[in-house]
Amino acid sequence: MKYNKSFSAIILIFLMGSCKKVSVNNELQDTYVQFNFPNTYPSGGYATIKNYYFSQKGLDIDTIYLPIKTLGLVPEKQYEVKLEQIKEAQLPTGSEHAIPNVHYVDFSNEDLKKRYLIAPETKEVTIPLVVKRDVSMRGKIVQLSIKIAQSKTAKPGLMNYNRVKILISGM
């Protein structure tokens, strides 16, 4: 009986020592990013529509924080969220497209691009959108439609969740 237990233990140790680490092939090699507005339902192809009003006199620049989340694999390296403006063919009466560096800080601004980098293994963040007040806004609504574009390290997420519309007013 002792002989059988000892023999079984030796075989078990031998088998465990000969195991190889198995790597699992995962087809989801990409990281996807999208806007994260959990209490809203996408409408018209946009994750949400936000209204911003410059209400304080003397306030000429402000920041709107946009929530972002990842889908797919969360990278072990820093990755970038890339934003682009969408210019729609038709705007509501009294509205105009936002002009980069007039109504908002352009997404290619080097200081701002540093804020669009997401730390490794991070799933949710907020990124800044810097809006500006300009005299051309008087009596108008400035529409800034944004989409998440493909960067070197991340792809846009679900279609209805990778676009946001911001309506800016106040003079």
Rank of each mutant, 00 (worst) to 15 (best):
E27D: 15
L167D: 13
K87Y: 11
D106K: 01
Y3N: 14
P128Q: 13
L28Q: 15
T122H: 08
I13T: 06
Q150R: 12
F54P: 14
Q143A: 10
N36E: 10
Q29G: 10
S55E: 15
K69S: 07
S169N: 03
Y41S: 14
K152D: 13
M159H: 13
I118C: 06
L83T: 02
K114I: 00
S55T: 13
R115A: 05
N4R: 05
N25W: 03
I148F: 06
N39V: 04
Q85F: 03
F35S: 15
E80F: 01
K114D: 03
E27H: 13
Y32P: 01
Q90V: 09
L15D: 07
I118A: 13
Y116P: 00
N109C: 00
A149F: 08
Y104N: 01
Y52P: 00
F37A: 10
K21Q: 09
M171F: 14
I64G: 01
G157N: 02
K165P: 07
I141T: 15
T40F: 07
I11Y: 06
F54T: 13
Y116N: 00
K2S: 14
G139N: 04
Y161K: 11
D106L: 03
F54L: 09
K152C: 04
R115G: 01
E121A: 10
A9G: 12
T93F: 04
P128A: 05
T93Q: 10
I11P: 07
V22D: 14
P100Y: 00
F35C: 15
F14R: 09
Q90H: 09
V142R: 02
I168E: 00
I13Y: 06
Y79W: 13
K77V: 07
L59D: 04
S8E: 14
S108Q: 15
L12A: 13
D106P: 00
L91N: 03
I13L: 08
P120Y: 06
K132S: 02
K152H: 07
E84P: 05
V74I: 13
R163M: 06
E80D: 09
P120I: 14
A89S: 12
G44Y: 02
I68N: 02
I13K: 04
E80Q: 14
Q34E: 14
D111A: 13
F37V: 04
K50I: 15
I61F: 03
Y46A: 09
S18K: 11
E27V: 10
V102C: 11
V74R: 09
Y32W: 08
K147P: 00
K69Y: 08
G45E: 02
I64L: 03
A47E: 05
I168Y: 02
S136C: 01
T63H: 01
I61G: 02
K2M: 09
P75I: 09
T122E: 12
K165V: 03
D134P: 08
D62L: 04
I166F: 02
M171Q: 08
